Computed example of a mutant assay.
Amino acid sequence: MTSSFFRSRFLLAHAWPALFGLLLSGCSTLGSVGADTFTLEGELPADFALEAQAHYGVANGCNGRARTRSFESDFEDSPHAYRFRIPVNYRDGLCEMRLARVGLFINGRYGDKDWQRTYDNGGLELVDTLPEGAPRFDGNGRLSKTAECTWFFQLSRAHSRKGEISKLLSCSGAGAYLANQTLPGKFVNLSFQVQQEERPARRNTWLSTAQGWKPCVPKEGWQQCQEPPVFGTFRMDGRECTVYPKCKE
């Protein structure tokens, strides 16, 4: 009986460190994946992609640091949906991490070359109190918005492609304020539309004609159209053109 008692104490003494470590490991792992979440979803136009960067701060005063998690949808040749489940809070070891904001990178492409890609920004800001007039979740826990995106064209000044058409992207309405106390379990539907008409990136540098937009040749030291206007040419898809977007009059 005495031998059995000491053998049991010996086994327990040697097993306890491993068991204790396993418990700690299990708590840390479960804490990092168990979280309250909300869903960010919507529709993207063809040749658009979206990246959401969720920024977290330490909420319980532990000795931790801010964290970032990224969620991405890729480019597609046709309109497509995206859906991200974003944690509102989670545990990282002993630290409670709480979502502070979600930065959005709205990526668009207008050609197959690397330089024919650009982006605009948007964002979801978490607040304790919604600003006056800010959209709120409906009775089904959904908030829906549509961002309007416009392409702005210009002549590239880059030495390697000077005189080529390049574009900038601008998206309005690509964000919202969210009340952090009621966010878990909610759905934010943020969709994107592209305006059919493109516009010059700078005023009075192109003139609209019945055939299309024609680029002005400015006076030396002057950025805008001359009076009367003098028109130049530009390059697009390897062709020399006189009007945008048709290229030829």
Rank of each mutant, 00 (worst) to 15 (best):
W151L: 14
D112E: 08
A81E: 03
H80L: 05
Y110M: 06
N60T: 13
F105E: 15
W151R: 15
E148N: 04
D114L: 07
C149Q: 03
R142H: 15
E51M: 08
G103M: 05
T129A: 08
R67N: 12
H159V: 15
F38D: 04
L99S: 03
L124R: 04
R91I: 03
D92A: 14
N60R: 15
N60I: 14
A147P: 08
I86C: 14
R85T: 06
R69V: 05
F137D: 01
A100K: 10
V88L: 13
E96M: 15
Y90F: 11
G139I: 06
M97S: 09
G139Y: 01
M97G: 03
A134E: 04
A52D: 01
K145L: 09
V127N: 01
R136Y: 01
A49Y: 04
R109N: 02
A134H: 05
A134I: 04
C95Y: 05
F152P: 01
S70M: 14
G57K: 12
D138T: 01
G31K: 03
G122L: 05
K113C: 04
R65L: 10
G133Y: 10
D128Q: 14
R98P: 02
G64I: 08
L155W: 13
A46G: 12
S32G: 01
R101L: 06
A66Q: 14
A66C: 11
E43T: 11
V58K: 06
T118C: 09
E148C: 04
L130H: 06
I106G: 08
A49V: 07
G122V: 07
R117P: 00
N60P: 10
W151H: 13
G42L: 10
G133C: 10
P131R: 10
L94V: 07
V127W: 05
A81Y: 00
R65P: 04
P131E: 07
D138I: 00
R83T: 04
A81L: 02
W115N: 10
L155Y: 13
G139W: 02
A158D: 11
W151C: 12
K113L: 15
F71Y: 11
G57M: 15
L40W: 10
E76Q: 11
D36E: 14
E132Q: 11
R101A: 06
R83A: 04
R85A: 07
L124V: 01
F152L: 14
E125P: 01
R69C: 08
G108D: 08
R136L: 03
H80F: 04
H55D: 00
L104K: 13
W151E: 13
R117H: 08
D112V: 01
L94A: 02
S73K: 13
G141C: 14
F38N: 10
N107P: 03
F153P: 03
A54T: 01
P45T: 14
Y119N: 15
T146S: 07
Y110Q: 01
T129D: 09
